[in-house]
């Protein structure tokens, strides 16, 4: 009896270990996992693209959205991201120079569009003349020191010659998501946000908007790059290629991006 009990235990643990091994193998074989840091302005389209990608390839994607500058600091300090989808060109270039990213893998995945937007209908006219009228207390932009969309907003105001007059009324969000929040909550009646934030299926979702002509600011080129952490990650390379695929690009287009 004693002996039987012992072998019984052994048999149990053997089966347990085998089950675990099979289970783990299934998990691993199911596809690679890729950790992606994505700029706040591209979070919404990226979720749609990732859903397609996971269905098409069987790979798994973990998305973290936030400010590009914060990702830079985290990646420099060993954050386990495989891919960075930045809001600018400079950050991926810096990372490549510093050896934290793979130089040859950098490309422009999207060109962003800036829009002057208000949740109120009839507030922003299609030519942006509202800036000249100036009938508002606050105008929200993303912090131009940190966010390319913020810098572009300042360039627009400068090219139109309204910057100096409007400076006292500018409120800055830490990133473009927060600038949107200031406007959407009504605390600032209007603001410069990313077209992707107010566009759905090719149309402005609500309120009124002026899609800023690209001649008024430098193009907002958003670059992607493979990070050092993802150098041997098949899913990461597949995802980067997928971003240039027509399927992904039609999603981007519906959010107002070009490439």
């Amino acid at each position: 009896m004693e002996r039987d009990g012992y072998t019984g235990h052994r048999a149990f643990w053997f089966r347990f270990a085998m089950t675990l091994a099979v289970f783990l193998t299934v998990l691993v074989a199911h596809g690679d996992e890729v950790n992606v840091a994505v700029a706040a302005n591209f979070a919404a389209p990226m979720k749609r693209i990732v859903a397609d990608f996971e269905r098409d390839t069987g790979h798994k994607v973990q998305l973290s959205s936030g400010a590009t500058g914060k990702f830079y600091a985290q990646i420099r300090n060993g954050a386990p991201f495989d891919v960075l989808l930045a809001a600018d060109e400079e950050t991926p270039a810096h990372l490549a120079q510093e050896g934290a990213a793979i130089t040859g893998s950098r490309f422009t995945y999207a060109i962003g569009r800036l829009v002057l937007w208000s949740p109120r209908s009839d507030f922003v006219d299609v030519d942006g003349k509202v800036l000249q009228r100036g009938n508002f207390d606050h105008i929200a932009i993303a912090n131009p020191r940190l966010a390319p969309y913020g810098m572009a907003a300042v360039e627009v105001l400068r090219s139109l010659g309204y910057y100096d007059a409007l400076v006292p009324r500018i409120v800055e969000g830490e990133n473009i998501a927060q600038a949107y929040q200031f406007v959407a909550s009504g605390n600032a009646p209007l603001g410069f946000v990313a077209l992707s934030q107010v566009m759905k299926d090719g149309r402005i979702r609500e309120g009124s908007a002026w899609i800023v002509p690209e001649t008024l600011h430098r193009p907002i080129r958003q670059d992607a790059i493979l990070l050092g952490h993802g150098i041997n990650n098949v899913a990461a390379r597949t995802l980067l290629a997928y971003l240039r695929d027509n399927k992904a690009r039609s999603v981007m287009q519906s959010f107002g991006y070009a490439w």
Binding site: G69, Y72, A73, A140, L146, V171, G173, A188
Partner: peptide
Amino acid sequence: GGNIPGQTRVISVQIYDHVEAM
């Protein structure tokens, strides 16, 4: 706050901006 100098840009926000701006 809206990050307005002299109105709402306090030390902690200023530090954060410096860090984010690298």
